[in-house]
Nucleic acid binder design. Structure first.
Lengths: 239, 239
DNA sequence: CTAACATTTTTCCAACTGGTCAAAATTTGG
DNA sequence: CCAAATTTTGACCAGTTGGAAAAATGTTAG
């Protein structure tokens, strides 16, 4: 068997002249960064919005600037005026993403009771899968590629946050308020089951069919997951 | 807001001459397809193996023939001798994938008891995530892109299979052997929680850290999931 | 050994890619 | 209104990409 290493095939980066803005900043390192104009804000948002569409479907390498520009309704050079490189757009999306992505977990409160806390965590994550499926897919795409652009953030910020919340969960377990089990895998299972409805949406719809594949599927999912995490699948006497 | 449709940016396909093999087949439509030579079988396997590496990381559009050829240890034209187009390689991978992918669910037996059946279904899926992570990612990549190449198979074969197994689950529920809940979402949750360990492997490792991120994570996951699906997170008196 | 066939390499190409640049068009502050 | 600054466009470029053609090199059955 030959070596199976996948080489990163990004375009070999040739030395390149600076972008106008960069050059200006370099000339006056202490100049106040001129506040963004209205047009700059609007267009940047337009581009990021379009890029989210494209990157979340095809991943970084599968997406082209042309395509993003077309979705954003502008020409490629015009887009490049606002974001001098493709990577820049992606970076902006990813850093905005990580913040919003971890927010629901941050809210889990040690002073609350485990079941209401876990229940509303699941609800929030499920709402995010419903309302921000592109963000979820962008994240998933990055994971599938080995998270090259955010691995340190995962190893530091994410790990710290999860460590902290795992301690809370362990505390609840010690108090007998929660079944004694692995808090890390518990968190993983919440991520997995909720994000599934964004990332594998096509499959979910295909399997549920026309009749059950409508918007109701998120409510069904919420009900099911609530039961799963509370009681599992063991039948209980009615009450 | 401009139209947000993402146009498929596959290379515009220009009319192209036939590949040798195609031409031959067209010339003698009833000729027996000559059995593959040893070299053909070996090389095709090599290529498919390499393509699995590349496609599973970068998706269809993010992968290049050059890259696949390099991983397979051959030149691009040589690779194209065996698979005249990029799509062909991907198609072969996908159709092989779907079979193996659904096999574990097919094994779920109506005559068995629900918990042993579900338990071993989870085990099998988890083993697949551990032993065939590239296949899992290839599948996930296709889903993220909206499953353009397998959507009909999902809507027919997969849906039928799940419908059938959902009936089995409902039967168990009616017999009081299984908590009454949504069988479709039950299956989704098994898919999600098990495939997570292949698709989000980087994240799982990053969060578990060096000490707990080793091979043991699959055994931990199995134990955790077993408890989750059996009893949920409600604490139980020891027994 | 040799003809017929299978495989590999070399060379090539048109379309696409990320990105540059100068000029033209537009907006904005005074 | 006007000059300065900002924004947009069109033409362009070098490297990459999927793929074709043909020549060169193996392999194998008789």
């Amino acid at each position: 068997m030959p070596p199976n290493k996948v080489k990163s095939a990004e375009p070999a980066l040739t030395p390149r002249r600076q972008h106008k803005a960069d050059a200006k900043a370099a000339a006056h390192p202490h100049a106040k960064p001129r506040p963004l104009t209205r047009i700059q804000r609007e267009k940047q948002d337009l581009i990021l919005e379009a890029a989210l569409d494209v990157f979340s479907m095809h991943g970084f390498r599968g997406s082209t600037i042309d395509q993003i520009a077309e979705v954003a309704g502008m020409s490629k050079p015009n887009l490049l005026y606002y974001f001098p490189r493709k990577e820049e757009i992606h970076r902006r999306l990813m850093s905005a993403l990580l913040d919003t992505w971890l927010a629901p977990l941050k809210e889990m409160d040690a002073d609350g009771d485990p079941f209401p806390e876990i229940r509303s965590y699941i609800r929030r994550k499920l709402e995010m899968a419903r309302d921000y499926p592109r963000e979820s897919r962008l994240f998933a795409n990055e994971m599938l590629q080995g998270a090259p652009r955010i691995i340190e953030m995962l190893e530091v910020d994410l790990k710290n946050l999860v460590d902290e919340k795992a301690k809370i969960l362990l505390g609840w377990m010690d108090q007998g308020k929660l079944a004694h089990t692995d808090p890390y895998h518990l968190i993983f299972s919440i991520w997995a089951t909720t994000q599934h409805y964004a990332d594998f949406d096509v499959q979910v719809r295909a399997v549920l069919g026309k009749d059950r594949g409508g918007e109701g599927r998120f409510e069904d999912a919420a009900r099911y997951l609530e039961q799963l995490f509370l009681f599992g699948l063991t039948p209980r006497p009615k009450g």
